[in-house]
Design a protein around this nucleic acid. Structure first.
Length: 670
DNA sequence: CCGGTTACTCGTCGCTGATA
DNA sequence: TATCAGCGACGAGTAACCGG
């Protein structure tokens, strides 16, 4: 035996997880990764429910090893093994899955299954076996999940949870059952509290009782003896205080000596995330404690508000952690941050978006909508991981739907993401509102999809004029860079403008559009009247008398190399086949600016988890819609109502009219 | 029991060199 | 020249542990 107290004390075990001491062989490791990759399953929204059930499995495993940790794989194997003959825990009858009874009673909420790839089966419900009503009441009382789990798992889990509490002694009427379910299901705005304090997986982590951090702050009832915070205290304004100064203050208040025994007091500080606990004690065991932030259950309010604010304000953890580090301010760990993001922020944002989207659909359901759609990948080039496809109502400039596709959903082919996202998104929109026209960019896959798909036969397809002009000008630029075609370069802005002009003036008439378009070939060689136009009318330019003194570029010579090159491009068969798509003069400029706005929430330089990315995309849509109707900051003739903005294309500064500042009213107490 | 610390996994990207 | 594998770097996120 080792002698106690003799010599140096045994080395203290370092904190943290001990290393395995077993670095994997590179080759084996790669093969193992590839093997695992092939069996990966994404639970996404269902993950909190999975964790909850895994915990229950661990604590209730009847093999004498209750409480033994099991891996996800072990739990999955357990579920698979018992899938076919699983029984209700209490009534011992098989669960039955019926498509007919998989109806979400809360069908007023739109199906958000198309938000990302997650939850395509979320709306599927297990139908309960004919449990009696008393059993259901009992289960509502005894097995109602905490609102946070209800919130995290979504309505889809509720019936399953309810089922788990069934007994054979039920006698409630169906009406009472529905009442109980309705109250249990709660309202998006106010998450009901469970009647008891039974903890769930998440509440075990944080001891929270509500669905979202903001809701938490509003709904938490406070036991005056528990030392917990009221919502007012949590929403209170905050400022930064130096530890040294606050220590001085406490020492002034409580003194250097104990008030009970006059012994010397020793003060200590203990930072917990963004909060700090002060303790003072004397040698006789008299102690005092003060903490810098109100507590919400067992967590300091700042430790959930700050991580939430990082996401809600479009920042990311690493930058904010660095910011706090440089300021020498204690901040929460990455573990806490991602836990808060996963458990509270993401579900809250999704809920907010669902509510907002359903009210949008409700307000638009009687209208014939023209929607603009465009995709945006999370990184440049063809190495993108996610594609966000957003749809905007062209009349109201509100984002109607946002869909995120992971590259793995298209077999790793990033080029196919946009098509999938478009199709999924448009199908979802058509199921909720009356879409009569869709405006997209000139993506060939999208065009082919709408053209060849029967389900879109009643949807007119237009292509964004800006994209059309840009794509054609790109060709002209390439032509102008060829030897002998240099004169064409000066005409590029005019050709771009002419494309816009033709689209606007044709008024939906394709023949007129073509006639106007070809008139450029006459005009550019100083020929403003010609014998016969394509639409059978006398050919004539639409401009008035030209002033030779205002000419700043030379006319081209008829049939010269630049003129012939331009004619070839303008009469290209493929290009002419696409012209009808521009006859309605639709553009997606507002959508492009929304895509620019997305960068505020998800920079292309950062990579995010799927959940984190979807959350940020929805946040950007909420931000956009909430602020899209802002007034201008000042009347048109007031100079202070403008700012200077630089245009990369024209390389010029131009005034831009300012709108009133955003108030972010959708974030309570912001 | 919760938050922090540390090791580890996983996914992605960019670079390099071998090979077809 | 294109493609592929190997490798390291990095960030996001998780798991396992410790301290209070």
């Amino acid at each position: 035996m080792e002698s106690v107290g003799a010599g140096a004390p045994p080395p203290k075990r370092p904190r943290g997880r001990p290393p395995s001491g077993n670095p994997p062989a590179k080759r084996a490791y790669s093969l193992d990764r590839a093997k695992r990759e092939g069996t990966r399953v994404y639970l996404l929204d269902s993950f909190p429910s999975w964790v909850q059930q895994k915990k229950e499995f661990e604590t209730s495993s009847g093999d004498g090893e209750a409480g033994k940790k099991s891996s996800h794989a072990e739990f999955a194997n357990h579920l698979l093994k018992h899938h076919s003959d699983r029984l209700c825990r209490l009534c011992k009858r098989s669960y039955q899955i019926s498509v007919e009874t998989q109806t979400n009673k809360d069908d007023t909420l739109p199906d958000t299954s198309t938000i990302g790839s997650a939850g395509n089966d979320d709306r599927k419900r297990m139908s309960s076996t004919p449990h009696t009503s008393k059993a259901r009441r009992q289960l509502v009382e005894d097995y109602m999940p905490s609102p946070i789990v209800q919130h995290l798992a979504g309505p889809s889990n509720q019936h399953e949870d309810i089922m788990e509490g069934c007994t054979e002694e039920s006698d409630l009427s169906d009406l009472e059952i529905d009442d109980a379910l309705d109250s249990y299901r709660g309202d998006d705005a106010t998450f009901g509290k469970r009647p008891d304090d039974e903890e769930t997986a998440e509440s075990e982590v944080f001891h929270f009782d509500t669905g979202s951090c903001d809701q938490m702050l509003e709904d938490e009832s406070v036991d005056p003896h528990s030392g917990e915070a009221s919502s007012d205290e949590i929403d209170d304004a905050k400022c930064i205080v130096s530890l040294r100064e606050i220590t001085k203050l406490l020492q002034n208040v409580y003194g250097a000596n104990c008030s009970k025994c006059s012994d010397k007091l020793i003060y200590s500080t203990n930072p917990i995330g963004t909060a700090v606990i002060f303790k003072w004690s004397c040698s006789n065991g008299h102690v005092g404690v003060w903490h810098s932030q109100p507590r919400f259950s067992n967590m300091f309010s700042g430790n959930i508000q700050f991580p939430s604010a990082v996401v809600l304000s479009g920042n990311n953890f690493s930058k904010m952690a660095l910011f706090f580090k440089f300021c020498k301010i204690h901040f929460v760990s990455s573990t806490t941050f991602f836990r808060v993001q996963r458990l509270y922020v993401s579900p809250s944002v999704k809920d907010e978006w669902r509510t907002h989207q359903s009210s949008l659909f409700e307000s638009l359901k009687e209208q014939q909508l023209c929607v603009a759609g465009d995709g945006r990948t999370d990184s440049p080039g063809h190495c993108a991981q996610y594609c966000t496809y957003s749809f905007m109502d062209t009349s109201g400039s509100k984002i109607l739907h946002v869909d995120v596709v992971d590259v793995r959903e298209t077999g790793g082919k990033s080029t196919n993401m946009e098509r999938l996202a478009f199709e999924r998104g448009l199908d979802y929109l058509m199921a909720n509102v009356n879409v009569t026209e869709v405006v997209t960019d000139a993506h060939v896959q999208t065009t082919a999809l709408i053209k060849n798909c029967e389900k879109y036969e009643n949807v007119e397809h237009s292509i964004d004029v800006w994209h059309g002009a840009k794509n054609f000008v790109k060709k002209v630029i390439a032509l102008s860079q060829m030897k002998g075609n240099e004169d064409l370069r000066l005409w590029i802005p005019a050709i771009r403008n002419h494309f816009w002009h033709c689209s606007r003036e044709c008024a939906g008439d394709v023949l007129k559009l073509k006639a106007l378009w070809w008139s450029m070939l006459h005009h550019i060689v100083n020929e403003h009247d010609w014998v016969l136009s394509i639409d059978g009318s006398i050919g004539k330019c639409q401009h008035g008398e030209l002033d030779p003194s205002e000419r700043n570029k030379p006319w081209l010579k008829k049939d010269s190399p630049p003129h012939a090159a331009l004619r070839k491009a303008m009469t290209n068969k493929r290009f002419l086949n696409m012209l009808p798509y521009y006859k309605n003069f639709k553009h997606t400029g507002n959508l492009e600016s929304f895509h620019n706005h997305m960068l505020m929430y998800a920079s292309k330089r950062c990579s995010y988890s799927f959940e984190g990315y979807v959350t940020r995309m929805l946040l950007s849509a909420i931000d956009h819609n909430y602020h899209s109707d802002r007034e201008y900051a000042a009347p048109k003739d007031v100079v202070s109502g403008y700012r200077q903005k630089y245009s990369k294309r024209t390389r010029k500064w131009a005034p831009e009219r300012l709108k009133v500042a955003k108030d972010y009213g959708y974030i309570p107490n912001s």
